[in-house]
Design a protein around this nucleic acid. Sequence first.
DNA 1: GCCAACGTTGGC
DNA 2: GCCAACGTTGGC
Length: 157
Amino acid sequence: MNHWLMKSEPDDVSVDDVLAMKKQTVAWYGVRNYMARNFMRAMKVGDQAIFYHSQATPPGVAGVCKVIKTTEPDMSQFDPKSKYFDAGSKRTEPRWDLVTVAPVKKLAFVSLEELRSVPELTECRLLAKGNRLSVMPLTADEFKAIVAFSQKAGRRG
DNA sequence: GCCAACGTTGGC
DNA sequence: GCCAACGTTGGC
């Protein structure tokens, strides 16, 4: 099983629904970066992903989800009304894919600032200056360290 | 709102 | 194929 970190903006309603466990599944549409897309293509059913909120105050991790369906074409790329529309993508040769995820658990929130204090994460791309990648792999150690830090933070209150 | 980082585009 | 200009992301 592989581990991942997936970013979303918290004003994306479907994402809040996941964290609130209101939705059973969420199609992870809107990824428009080739590297992030390629990481999604490498995902397998059962892989777990840390749920990260970017553009939030503060930004940080808020939950764990798992892949329940591997990549398929992201249909929003063909919708001229969508902000994710890509005029250059052909239906016969879709450029962008999505995976479908389901919530596993909500985590006690860990801010980006706190993540910087986790020793296992010093090499993690998430913490690199200027990082913009919205989907990235984590090592098992990095994944475990984030969850453990959150559990510690949760007990601390 | 600002700015650093960096991916993408387009002229050549 | 290079690279400058441009656009977007994301932290602050």
